[in-house]
Amino acid sequence: SASLEDVKTAVLGLLVILQTKLYTLPASHATRVYEMLVSHIQLHYKHSYTLPIASSIRLQAFDFLLLLRADSLHRLGLPNKDGVVRFSPYCVCDYMEPERGSEKKTSGPLSPPTGPPGPAPAGPAVRLGSVPYSLLFRVLLQCLKQESDWKVLKLVLGRLPESLRYKVLIFTSPCSVDQLCSALCSMLSGPKTLERLRGAPEGF
């Protein structure tokens, strides 16, 4: 439990870093931090981490990651405290083949985003970082199938509809809506759902 406290501190630090690096160059920093966060949550489900502190780590990670939004130009952003989304000039939600690297070039400044813009690109060529939603999407499927803490599952179920409104997140990387529907149906009809959940409301 003591070591998990250190892990929790590290994860919180990564969330803060991602919130900053999403809007700064090099964009590969945001890509790497995002991948680290998603990989860490995957390990929770792989090794069945069920301690309360592990659940709190997942809760905080999902609470942040499910706020990711994308505009029509595929640029990622996060809402501010007033709910207004600021889109990044440097990070996009497109999935890119590994051989192309985590970044790609664009020939010049991008068109203005639909929300308040981030800082304008400084040079004639900007390297865009790929932060594909499919990585998070796979972890969300694991959550629906394996999550043991009701608070975490409730958060994910509550945030998913709003995330799905931003269709560009889903359609720019390999996210299977069929698998999502299947996971939701299995969660509702499967007898093991109630068996594994802690803290579920009576009558769920």
Rank of each mutant, 00 (worst) to 15 (best):
A2N: 14
A2E: 13
S3F: 06
S3Y: 07
S3K: 11
E5C: 09
E5W: 05
D6R: 00
V7Q: 02
V7K: 01
K8C: 07
K8Y: 13
V11S: 06
L12H: 15
G13Q: 01
G13L: 00
G13T: 00
L15Q: 14
V16Y: 08
I17G: 01
L18I: 06
Q19I: 02
Q19V: 03
K21E: 01
L22E: 01
Y23P: 03
T24N: 11
L25D: 10
L25Q: 15
L25K: 12
L25Y: 14
L25N: 10
P26W: 02
P26C: 03
A27L: 05
S28Q: 13
H29G: 05
R32P: 01
R32S: 04
V33N: 00
V33P: 04
Y34L: 05
E35C: 12
E35Q: 12
E35G: 09
E35T: 11
M36V: 08
M36K: 06
L37Q: 00
L37N: 00
V38F: 03
S39G: 15
H40A: 02
Q42C: 13
H44Y: 00
H44S: 01
Y45Q: 01
K46C: 12
H47R: 14
H47N: 12
Y49Q: 02
T50I: 09
L51V: 06
L51W: 04
L51A: 07
L51C: 07
L51E: 05
P52D: 09
P52E: 12
P52S: 07
I53C: 07
I53G: 02
S55F: 03
S56Q: 15
I57P: 00
R58Y: 00
R58H: 00
A61T: 14
L67H: 15
L67S: 11
R69I: 02
A70N: 04
S72L: 07
L73K: 13
L73A: 12
H74V: 02
H74M: 05
H74Y: 04
H74I: 02
L76T: 06
P79N: 05
K81Q: 13
D82I: 07
D82W: 09
G83F: 04
G83K: 07
V84W: 09
V84E: 12
V85R: 05
V85C: 08
F87M: 06
P89L: 05
P89A: 07
V92G: 06
V92L: 10
C93D: 03
M96P: 11
M96R: 10
E97Q: 11
E99M: 12
G101D: 15
G101L: 12
G101V: 13
G101W: 06
S102Y: 11
E103Y: 12
E103V: 10
E103A: 10
K105M: 12
K105I: 13
K105G: 12
K105N: 15
G108Y: 14
P109C: 12
L110C: 15
L110P: 11
L110R: 09
S111K: 12
S111H: 10
P112S: 14
P113C: 13
P113I: 15
P124L: 11
R127N: 09
R127W: 07
R127Q: 13
L128N: 11
L128T: 11
G129Y: 08
S130C: 13
S130T: 09
V131L: 14
P132V: 04
L135H: 13
L135R: 14
L135G: 15
L136T: 09
L136F: 12
F137I: 04
R138V: 07
R138A: 10
V139N: 06
V139I: 14
L140M: 09
C143N: 01
L144M: 07
K145R: 09
K145T: 15
Q146R: 12
Q146P: 01
E147Q: 00
S148A: 10
S148M: 11
D149M: 03
D149Q: 06
D149E: 11
D149K: 02
K151W: 08
K151F: 09
V152R: 01
V152T: 05
L153Q: 01
L153R: 00
L153T: 02
L153A: 01
K154E: 09
V156K: 00
L157I: 04
L157M: 05
G158Y: 12
R159N: 05
R159P: 00
L160K: 00
L160V: 04
P161N: 10
P161F: 06
E162P: 02
E162T: 11
S163W: 05
L164S: 00
L164C: 02
R165H: 08
R165K: 12
Y166D: 08
V168T: 15
V168G: 07
V168S: 10
L169R: 03
L169A: 06
I170W: 11
I170P: 05
F171I: 12
F171T: 15
T172S: 10
S173R: 03
P174T: 06
P174S: 08
C175W: 03
C175N: 06
C175L: 04
V177A: 06
V177C: 07
Q179A: 11
Q179K: 11
L180A: 02
L180P: 00
L180N: 00
C181S: 08
C181W: 05
S182Y: 06
A183E: 14
L184V: 09
L184F: 01
S186V: 10
S186Y: 08
M187I: 11
L188K: 00
L188R: 02
S189N: 10
G190Y: 11
K192Q: 14
K192C: 14
L194I: 11
L194N: 06
E195V: 07
R196N: 10
L197Y: 07
R198N: 09
R198G: 09
R198M: 08
R198D: 08
R198V: 10
G199Q: 09
G199M: 09
G199H: 14
A200V: 14
P201C: 13
P201V: 06
G203T: 08
